[in-house]
Design a protein around this nucleic acid. Structure first.
Length: 621
RNA sequence: GCGCCCGUAGCUCAGUCGGAUAGAGCAAUCGCCUUCUAAGCGAUCGGUCGCAGGUUCGAAUCCUGCCGGGCGUGCCA
């Protein structure tokens, strides 16, 4: 077993230790987890196996004795030196330089070592989730960029991905907005999203009955004037809701004028959504839009199927699904016969699994909807809608993200208490990026000196957007975080622009060396150069680069983009050490070419990784 | 009431399936542009991993209980 077959040392070591443990303990390899981990401390080698300590007791052995026997049994020919047993039973492994070089060379192609997942079924990513007639706010930032990143990662792994922008384009709020617009006599051909948003808000407010406030006013012995005021408000609210319900019925019945107006406000909303997607460098277009309205003809079937299967029952006039393990039921039809968003989501799961043929459906939606998705997914599992056409069980997962908070640790608002629009937030980030880039370009020594305004602004935009996206994607998805533009655009330390900067510096070295730097990441610049990794910094950088395919696979498994961010940070750090310790341009051949090839690989891993985050890699900064 | 999420350095956060001395960045202090981009690099300072038990050869990580913060919870989406 001399030649490594993988570009990933962890996989290779896992394979070989598995066989050794299997031999020593006399059990099948599948049952032996070698627990291969990168070493925390370089003195302990490059990797370690922690299996001996875990397995010793169950097999009546001392951990160190078992470790010795595993070391005696393992065949690491062509891969690593003879391992050392240390401490309570750690097996410390140091790779041979030649093995690192050959694995690195075999990763140096278009794939960068990333292994395609050959699966028959696709993956659906529910992302963005805008509401018609509502401006995008910071919550949509997360739903959009996290979803885009997850989608890009699966695409990178060769998977067929369905991006589904599940538009809130149906239901009472839209009907109320249409009523408000009609009453205001708005011209829907020239209307802006801001106008729509105002109509939506006023419609929401006028329909918001304060029954509890009224009850409290009576209970607290408020004066008759106050009570009458509240009653009048509630009366108006009830009337507004009644009118909206009537409008919704007309819309649902296909009223021609109403449907025409409805389409206009959707168009108006989506125009801005797509513009924002472009600004964010997110892949999201009309082909990814499928609104709640798409499912409207499937809702009654959903309820019927649940009734027929015996999983749903009538309760207080409503239809509910009950669960064996909890009291809280899920309503799928109201007592007035109307459907709810749960009904739509059930139809959507069924569609995505069965018709889009997805074995994984990932919902990138606000964490506060956790209970809702638990209900929906459990119901789908009970009725069997999580089965693809060939009977495979699809994984339904809610990737719930935390809130974006202001400096006061409350959900981010403007000073006047409005939701912060995504457009204004991005405009600010771009402005900061542009001013920073333009300021630096005035230095005659700057690589950006002399670029024209168009180029400078393009770089500035990329930098500003990178700051916002990286700040978000580098945190654990489920956590709330405090949005602090000043910190994000300081461009220092663990930020998106820092990674971009590392990339631009490497590119600059390659250009100065006269290497033809391909615009695409896919093409290796120096595919035939022999790699020598004599310096510790070269070795460390090489080992870090080899981890890339594993990290990409890890992000797909865990759905945690922050792991990719942390990895790119490690690459940048390893490159910094290399940059400091190992002169490239001034070194002699063949070292010079070997180091240039390391630069090229580092550059492409950074650019590819940033690409998976949906972050651009400017050529100069 | 019940359910879920969170609690790690002054601040913002990592910490992989339980693994060796818990790590980054910011802030602070001190160095480094005559050498491949100083948006950088190095060094110093900084810890009762919320608290208390338990499991284990080994716990920030798993279990139980408490404290503190956030969120959700039958006819909105």
């Amino acid at each position: 077993m001399p030649i490594p077959t993988s570009t990933d040392p962890v996989r290779e070591l896992d394979h070989r230790f598995r066989l050794a443990i299997s031999e020593v303990l006399g059990i099948v390899p599948e049952a032996c987890d070698p627990q291969i981990r990168p070493s925390g401390d370089p003195r302990h080698g490059d990797y370690q196996s922690n299996a001996a300590m875990a397995l010793a007791k169950a097999n009546g052995l001392k951990p160190r004795d078992l470790a010795d026997r595993i070391v005696a049994a393992v065949d690491l020919t062509g891969l690593a030196e003879v391992p050392e047993v240390a401490g309570p039973g750690f097996i410390n492994i140091r790779l041979e330089m030649g093995a690192i070089a050959s694995m690195l060379a075999s990763m140096d192609d278009a794939s960068l070592g990333v292994v395609r997942q050959n699966r028959p079924h696709g993956v659906t990513v529910d992302l963005c989730g805008v509401n018609v007639a509502k401006q995008m706010h910071v919550g949509h930032l997360r739903a959009t960029i996290i979803g885009d990143c997850i989608a890009r990662v699966f695409e990178r792994l060769g998977r067929r991905v369905h991006r589904e922008n599940h538009l809130g384009d149906w239901g009472l709020p839209i009907a109320m907005t249409l009523v408000a617009l009609q009453e205001a006599g708005a011209n829907l051909d020239t209307i802006t999203l801001a106008d729509l948003n105002a109509a939506y808000r006023s419609a929401q407010a006028s329909g918001n009955a304060d029954e509890k406030g009224l009850a409290a006013a009576i209970a607290n012995g408020c004066g008759p004037h106050r009570i009458a005021e509240l009653e009048a408000q509630n009366h108006d609210a009830r009337a507004a809701v009644a009118q909206a319900k009537a409008t919704l019925l007309k819309l649902q019945a296909g009223d021609i004028e109403l449907v025409r107006d409805w389409k206009k406000i959707i168009e108006c909303t989506m125009r801005e959504v797509f513009e924002t997607a472009v600004t964010l460098n997110v892949v999201l277009g009309p082909e990814h839009s499928r609104g709640e309205s798409f499912y409207r003809d499937r809702l009654s079937t959903v309820v019927e199927d649940f009734m027929e299967s015996g999983l749903a029952s009538e309760d207080d006039g409503a239809i509910v699904v009950k669960y064996p393990d909890r009291d809280r039921p899920m309503l799928i039809r109201k007592s007035d016969g109307g459907f709810l968003y749960a009904t739509t989501d059930l139809a959507a799961v069924r569609f995505r699994v069965q018709e889009l043929d997805s074995e994984r459906v990932i919902y990138v939606v606000d964490a506060r909807q956790r209970d809702h998705f638990k209900d929906v997914f459990d119901a789908c599992r009970m009725i069997g809608w999580d089965r693809t056409s060939d009977g495979e069980r699809a994984e339904l997962v809610h990737l719930g993200f935390g809130a974006v908070l202001g400096p006061d640790k409350r959900p981010l608002k403007t000073r006047s208490g409005e939701n912060v629009t995504l457009a204004s937030l991005l405009a600010e980030a771009v402005a900061r990026g542009e001013s920073e880039v333009c300021a630096r370009s005035t230095d005659p020594d700057s690589p950006t000196h002399g670029l024209d305004d168009t180029e400078l602004h393009a770089i500035g935009r990329a930098v500003g957007i990178a700051a916002v996206k990286y700040a978000d994607l580098s945190l654990e998805v489920s956590r709330d975080y405090v949005f602090d533009l000043d910190r994000m655009v300081s461009f220092q330390g663990d930020t998106g622009p820092y990674i971009q900067y590392a990339h631009a510096r490497i590119r600059s070295i390659l250009e100065k060396a006269g290497v033809e730097v391909p615009f695409e990441i896919e093409s290796p610049a120096l595919p035939d150069v022999t790699l020598t990794l004599g310096e510790p910094a070269e070795r460390d950088l090489a080992l870090t680069l080899l981890a890339y395919p594993g990290v990409v696979a890890d992000v797909a498994r865990t759905l945690e983009p922050s792991r990719l961010c942390a990895y790119l940070q490690r690459v940048a750090a390893a490159f910094s050490a290399f940059y400091r310790e190992c002169p490239v341009l001034k070194s002699e051949e063949p070292t010079r070419s070997s180091r240039l090839r390391l630069c090229d690989l580092s550059r492409r891993v950074l650019a590819d990784g940033l690409g998976l985050l949906g972050i651009e890699s400017p050529r100069r900064m």
